[in-house]
């Protein structure tokens, strides 16, 4: 089953009078349970594509489907509702709320929906265990290493049981060992939970974890095949 489908999508950014095309007619679909890398050099359109799939942005033309629903023309609140519980994000800059503990950061998306305290607690503790941070539950981000923060971010993305997790350069700010650890966790969670992962990267050490690689250049898909680590 398709988790997301992109049909002839373009995205043009206009700064002043200057129009800059970030995507110039992109089409592909991603099936349930995939572990897919979007690769390409800086400015190739990877992040823009993730933002469109993640309902953070809207295409200039073309259509984006998530779970079969066209999300291209949704209102702000409709897009927020679509993101909530359906799509999880992992960002390059860790993106934790600095005033909240690891536990509270993971709990945050659950608070946006009607989960009981007990449900939230069980879910958060399960995810802290899953990313190996059960003993760091009550530490705040500034008390965690970069690798630990990114693992919390992965756990937070998984908290509401989304169908899709989008990760934008998840290891870019990590050293090799921590980057590998984060990728190992993402791979394992993909296999254990079946949640679909799509991540953008240009790091060859990360690409090898992907079971499918979509290569972008200058806003176009230049290669779309299964590569890297075979699942």
């Amino acid at each position: 089953m398709e988790v997301t489908k992109i049909e002839n999508v373009t995205r043009v950014f206009k700064i002043g009078q200057v129009e800059t095309p970030a995507l110039r007619g992109v089409s592909f679909s991603i099936e349930d349970g995939e572990f897919t890398a979007l690769v390409g050099p800086s400015g190739s359109g990877k992040t823009t594509l993730l933002q469109l799939i993640g309902c953070l942005d809207q295409p200039t033309s073309g259509q984006v489907f998530v779970k079969g629903q066209d999300v291209s023309r949704l209102t702000r609140n409709q897009r927020a509702d679509m993101r909530r519980g359906t799509i999880g994000f992992v960002f390059q800059f860790f993106a934790l709320i600095p005033t909240l503990t690891a536990y509270e950061n993971i709990e945050m998306p659950l608070l946006l929906d009607s989960h009981t305290h007990q449900e939230r607690r069980e879910r958060v503790m399960y995810l802290l265990e899953a990313v190996g941070l059960a003993d760091r539950a009550h530490h705040r981000p500034d008390q965690l290493s970069g690798g630990e923060q990114q693992r919390v971010a992965v756990a937070r993305a998984l908290a509401p049981n989304p169908v899709l997790i989008l990760a934008d350069e998840p290891t870019a700010n990590l050293d090799t060992a921590n980057g590998a650890q984060v990728m190992e966790i993402m791979t394992r969670l993909n296999e254990e939970t079946g949640v679909t992962f799509v991540f953008a990267t240009h790091d060859p050490r990360v690409i090898k974890y992907a079971r499918r690689v979509i290569t972008l250049r200058d806003g176009l898909i230049v290669e779309n095949n299964s590569a890297g680590k075979k699942g």
């Binding site: 953070l56 927020a80 509702d81 993101r83 934790l96 709320i97």
Partner: peptide, 16 residues
């Protein structure tokens, strides 16, 4: 600003 973006990305509505 970035935290607001993170919360929004999680699906927090403008009203909240």
């Amino acid at each position: 600003t970035r935290e607001i973006g993170i919360l929004s990305a999680m699906g927090m509505r403008g009203g909240r």
